[in-house]
Design a protein around this nucleic acid. Sequence first.
DNA 1: TAGAATTACATTGTATTCAATTTAATTTAG
DNA 2: CTAAATTAAATTGAATACAATGTAATTCTA
Lengths: 149, 149
Amino acid sequence: MNRDDSLTLDNQLCFALYACSREMTKLYRPFLDELELTYTQYVALLALWEQDDVTVKQLGSRLYLDSGTLTPLLKKMEQAQLIVRARDAADERNVRIRLTERGGTLKQKVCDAQQKAFSRANIPAEETKELRDRLTRLLQQIHQTTTEE
Amino acid sequence: MNRDDSLTLDNQLCFALYACSREMTKLYRPFLDELELTYTQYVALLALWEQDDVTVKQLGSRLYLDSGTLTPLLKKMEQAQLIVRARDAADERNVRIRLTERGGTLKQKVCDAQQKAFSRANIPAEETKELRDRLTRLLQQIHQTTTEE
DNA sequence: TAGAATTACATTGTATTCAATTTAATTTAG
DNA sequence: CTAAATTAAATTGAATACAATGTAATTCTA
């Protein structure tokens, strides 16, 4: 197999990731629509349920997103009364994000939505664990590369 | 582990996919920038190098993208003289996409770019094959689910 | 065969993503 | 202590994605 023959769509890990990620989002969409959540709002909530009262910077670090994406997202989530945004009195540069009661109590419904999405596609939870861990390692490997000077 | 405890970011296959796909795109970006290609243009070219002279519909089916994404993308690729768009005389509903000479000859440079991206992140080509195939199977499984009525 | 249904593409509107720049606050150095 | 450097968010502009709708061409069907 020469260099040219290997340059096919099905040979590209990046394309498998790109297409699979988008299809996964489409799988979630109808269940998230019922909760009036976008996919990005969903992952932001996942992060906040794990650690509440974080700065935009910290949230971005967890989600691999920057303020250009997060600022408008978080403003919409505040309008939807999922979170509250407030400048940190101790360091006015920081904006702290806190879940509202509504944002907190949505967790159980989102958990149900996630299970429905997976069962709809017949994705066995166990079978995905290794795949998930492998992707997480690859993610960190790439991220380390792209954030080196 | 109850239902709530499993609802963490690191437990979500969807998040691993979402974050990993975006980081992979960032890894490619500097190399594609040199060729004045966006990531989506890159995957469109990969598809066209495999099969040239296809309709927008066929290309969308291959890339899992619809005309809402492809029409503006292909117009820009036409402006950049990578492709030509033309209505099919036999069925005026179809728009056929053909590579230009410039679009065709870019293949070798893109091949080099792809290798540079992978070597920069120390991703061994062999090690990724299984991961890629696994993702492709998952992609098809989800796609089949979401395209059922 | 004429109207209905379907198909392919284009358009519109909403929501990201991200690089690059700007602004304001804080920290560091001289 | 004060100017320079750094940091955190916000803003801006370009390029996607995708659902929903519109339009024109083709096919189906009564």
